[in-house]
Every structure is written in C-alpha cells, then in structure tokens.
C-alpha cells in the first residue's frame, strides 16, 4: 500500500478557535477514504487543508505538515494554484458556473492549457463527461446552461469538471447531501469507478454512504481524530467507545 497523503500533527485554528488538533493520518492511493463525524468535528476543515482551500479564509492558520507524494504541500516551493490542479474538489452544493455545459467542463483544461487545439479540448470534455456518466444525458445540449440541469446532474457536472483537469486526488465535501437517493446512487457508482484511477477522499454525514463506498474510514469528533481504520473494522468492531456510540446513532 502506498500513501498518497501523509499528514502529521495537523492543527488548524480560525483566529483563537482551534478547529482540528493533532491530526496524523496516511491516506492510501486509489481507494476511497471517508471522513465521518458529527457537525463541527473538523472533517471539512481537514479536507480543505489537503488542497489548501483554507488559504482563502482569513485568519485561518495551519500547523503541522501535510505531504502529497512525499512533497510538503505547505512548503515554500509549492504554488497552491498548481496544487489545486492536482487535488481537485467537489463541493457540498453543486456549483456549476453559469455557463454552458461545455464551458464548465472546459474551464479547467483551458486555464491550465491542457489542450493545444479545439479538437483536443473537445476530446477532453467528452472523455470527462463519459467518465462522469453524463454523456448520454447531455450529449445533445452541450451548449445549454449547466445551471438548468437537475441537482444530481449539476453535481456530476462538477465531478466531470474536476476530472477534466486530470487530478491525482478528488476531494468531495458532502457531495450528495442535497441530492435524492437515486442521484446519490449514481454518484456513488461513479465514485466506485473513479477510484481505480483517482484517490478519493469524501466527507459525508451519512454513515451508510461511508460504509457503502469507502475502503477506509476516519472518525472525527470535536476536532480530534478518534479512530482511523478499515471501513469494515470501523463499522463492525470499532476500537473506541465514541466511535461505537456514533455509528450506533447514540449521538451526532
């Protein structure tokens, strides 16, 4: 097993308030890792550290180290913009740009200069839509507004948009929380296919979802990493009492 991410004693504070403390965990390559825990436990904060999205937030400070493929992503020679091209992100609320479906997918390749001509760009867009399982649904209306699609389709547009940049890792912050069960099932199916070529880290409120899709699960509580193990282990024989309480629905 090779690690994609290796974090050591990561601590994030917003102003005086510590959001997460002492998080050390290794995230394996090409599997789905789920981060679970009650609201406010710091799982989203941790996720946003992995592609430095916290940089945007004012008075947010980060201690400890995070390595991506043995490279310190908070090191001085790392450009967060390049990092985010390697570590893509899908958000809780589907946020397609108010542009056409084609332009949404082509956005990343265009800004990173991934296509040298129009036909290459077209190929990238088609491939990404294909991988996101959207091609059949939208192939006749690539020039329509992406914001006119259904919620589940919009979220898959966002996934396709992330794939189009060919990232190594895709971070997903509660990608299904606003979707109905059918759309959720489609996205989970998609994640299963994608994890063969990408490392996926998903934050979710749904323990069933974590159990269904992920291979490893990390349980966060009040800013601490309580337990990190194989998903099967976490959900059948948790070592920590708090994990036990959470997965059996006693709190959270």
């Amino acid at each position: 097993m090779t690690s994609k991410f290796r974090t050591k004693k990561v601590e994030v504070s917003y102003g005086d308030k510590k959001a997460i403390r002492d998080i050390s965990l290794d995230i394996e390559k090409n599997i789905i890792t789920a981060l679970i825990g009650p609201s406010g436990c710091g799982k989203s904060t941790f996720l946003r550290c992995l592609n430095r999205m916290n940089d945007v937030i004012e008075n947010c400070s980060i201690k400890g180290s995070i390595h991506l493929d043995e490279q310190d992503i908070y090191g001085p020679d790392i450009d967060p913009v390049e990092l985010r091209a390697r570590v893509g992100m899908v958000f809780q609320k589907a946020n397609p740009f108010p542009k056409s479906i084609f332009d949404n997918i082509a956005y990343g390749p265009r800004i990173h200069g991934l296509a040298s001509n129009d036909s290459e760009l077209k190929d990238i867009v088609h491939n990404s839509l294909e991988k996101a399982g959207l091609m059949d649904e939208v192939k006749d209306r690539l020039n329509d507004q992406a914001t006119g699609l259904s919620g589940g389709q919009q979220q898959r547009i966002c996934i396709a948009r992330a794939i189009a940049v060919s990232p190594e890792v895709i971070l997903m912050d509660e990608p299904c929380s606003a979707l109905d069960p059918i759309a959720t099932a489609k996205i989970e199916e998609l994640m299963n296919e994608l994890c063969q070529s990408y490392t996926i880290i998903i934050v979710t409120h749904s323990m069933q979802q974590a159990a269904r899709v992920s291979k490893k699960t990390a349980f966060f509580h009040l800013g601490d990493l309580i337990e990190y193990n194989d998903t099967d282990k976490i959900f059948t024989q948790p070592e920590n009492q708090k994990t036990q309480d959470y997965i059996t629905g006693r709190f959270g």
Binding site: G88, M89, F91, N95, A162, L171
Partner: peptide
Amino acid sequence: QSLRDGSMGLGATKAETIYIV
C-alpha cells in the same frame, strides 16, 4: 462564494476566477 470556491478548487488563479467566472 460557491462559484469562487469551485473555480479555486479547479486550480484557477484569483485573476482567472475573476475574469472568467
């Protein structure tokens, strides 16, 4: 803000985010 996040999350610079999105 979600549009800014979406663009930044794809590795766009602030300038690109501003004038394209």
